[in-house]
Nucleic acid binder design. Structure first.
Lengths: 336, 336
DNA sequence: GTGAAAGCGCTAACAC
DNA sequence: GTGTTAGCGCTTTCAC
């Protein structure tokens, strides 16, 4: 069996309380016994059980990260930041891919609670706000990430989606484009991006050419292609000269479909994405995109979470961070 | 406070032993009390503490997944499979990105042991075999994934790297290429891919044109570009007409650099990658690649791990699975 | 069928 | 400075 604190205490000729104290570096312990205990721990290859300490201390040192899919680069990148920040705080992460399925989410939430995680980061849209609501009732430290539930009094970190949509659109307008299309996915955040798009158009006196130039779909490469196929299939005069896709995957679908249709990007069609994932650098042409400030967002999320762990009654905060336009090679001036 | 098994027992008018039994669905319990207990659990919103049960049962229901970087698509995709298979077994995953840094790896290994995870999947090359060795000594259920340590008697799942290198090369030779280049990274697995490459060349009576056509570097996009820049910079007659990159990221670097150099892929240069990540579909032209059978590999890894958890003394096994050639648009016949 | 009681390996209050 | 002891919330014999 693995050595326990009792084994260490016996071998060192002290009590378990003493061992516990040197372990946690608290209480007054003489240098001599400290050294002695350390030595014995070394010899026995003692590895204190965090499950036992969690039982008493009520801290597991693990936090749950709920995301739609860890295989999705945006969330994988976010997870990496979370992992690093968690580690700084001495914690680690349990990864939960929900596939945006509320049942899966509910199962994971329940599991995480039974595991007594110290807190939850929910970076996956949860359709049923009741799930979050229950978490809050149970006083489980929680922060919503990149997906807020406005009506709920909860912590959240988001990028300013509205502004993101607005600046993407303004940029395209500044390039001289007047026939714009938008492909967004069916999440709340994307509604704000859409609204930013529409308001930017209006502010510049431009109107949406055709209702079909604004479509919602779930965010996959394949769907990006499908929608683009329809949008670009129209006869020359009608087709948009620039498309704003509400995430990079959709945008890359557009890129691929444009090529299929014999259009050159950016000469014949400008495309801009959202999220600024590593994919934007890998596709061709490289993709202009609205960046979410992931590093900042994750850092602030972890900070909020930690505050919430330290004081579960702390006032909830909703923090929104500004997006940033990253220009690459998929956008250019509109032809006259 | 959260309700405990005592609260449930009291409200239901039974003992905690009984509650425990209905919880775990074992022992003989009358339907009546079972119902009653379930009802009370519902009413109290009872969430049994897995940390307490872990303390007695010696099972935490969590496994540690060590990878180089969760933000790397290959490992993110693998993690997703692991997560799904773990879930089927009622477990979840703690993600540990090591950045291939042995110190980080050591810290994580220690942490995971203190957390008393049920097992470890190590999908990150660990330079110091001593780390793994100690794990084995401690009888921690462990399986190495996509990275073996031959000399160690441990479980491992790998793709047949040698064969992967061989079939990639054979394929290029079959297309008529005679001046081949290879870019590999500096991991043990890649050594086998290289050997497959060399043996395939030899078997077909082709020799490596130039020592500079075989280079090792760490596997990043940037390094792929750098190496390609040198390889393709040579005067026409000397430059390879096909390059085998030992992973997709390197291959995509080659693609980008080829474009930079005014070369058309695949007309002027064929490129084949390894891993067949989602990136292969996203870059342009889409990338031919040697696929690791990730789904199979992860499934078998989880199975090995579970066996090892059930019987830590079980005989260790090393399983190697066949790679598969996936042809896309980055490879074509050599020009005459 | 059900319950009493002894752990599991720690922490923390308190006594000395 | 160090030790005693009572939990933390479960599981699991073993009686009854």
């Amino acid at each position: 069996m693995k050595p326990t604190i009792y084994d260490v205490a016996r071998e060192a000729g002290v009590s378990i309380a003493t061992v516990s104290k040197v372990l946690n570096n608290n209480g007054r312990i003489s240098d001599k016994t400290r050294k002695k205990v350390h030595l014995i721990m070394e010899q026995l290859n003692y590895q204190p059980s965090m499950v036992a300490s969690a039982l008493t201390s009520q801290r597991t040192g693990t936090i749950g990260l709920m995301i739609p899919d860890i295989a999705n680069p945006f969330f994988a990148e976010a997870a990496r930041f979370f992992e690093d920040y968690a580690q700084q705080a001495g914690s680690d992460l349990i990864i939960c891919s929900t596939d945006r399925d509320d049942e899966k989410a509910a199962r994971y939430i329940s599991l995480l609670q039974r595991k007594r995680v110290d807190g939850l980061i929910i970076a996956s849209h949860v359709g049923n706000p009741e799930l979050i609501h229950r978490l809050l009732e149970n006083k489980v430290p929680t922060v919503l990430f990149s997906a807020d539930v406005r009506l709920l009094d909860c912590n959240s970190i988001t990028v300013d989606d509205y502004k993101g949509g607005y600046i993407a659109t303004e940029y395209l307008l500044a390039l001289g484009h007047r026939r714009l299309g938008i492909i967004s996915d069916n999440l709340p955040g994307s509604r704000y991006r859409e609204q930013g798009f529409l308001d930017a158009l209006e502010a510049h006196g431009v109107s949406l050419d055709h209702p079909d130039h604004m479509v919602q779909t779930s965010a996959t490469l394949e769907n990006g292609r499908k929608v683009a196929h329809r949008m670009l299939g129209e006869e020359g005069g009608q087709r948009p000269t620039a498309i704003f896709a509400c995430n990079d995957l959709l945008a890359i679908g557009v890129l691929q479909e444009a090529r299929e249709a014999g259009l050159n990007v950016p000469e014949d069609l400008s495309v801009i994405g959202f999220d600024n994932t590593m994919l934007a650098d890998i596709c061709h042409p490289s993709l202009s995109s609205i960046a979410q400030p992931l590093r900042d967002m994750t850092e602030q999320a972890m900070q909020l979470l930690n505050e919430s762990i330290d004081d579960p009654e702390a006032t909830k905060r909703k923090i929104s961070l500004p997006p940033e336009l990253v220009i690459r090679n998929s956008t250019s001036k509109a032809l006259e």
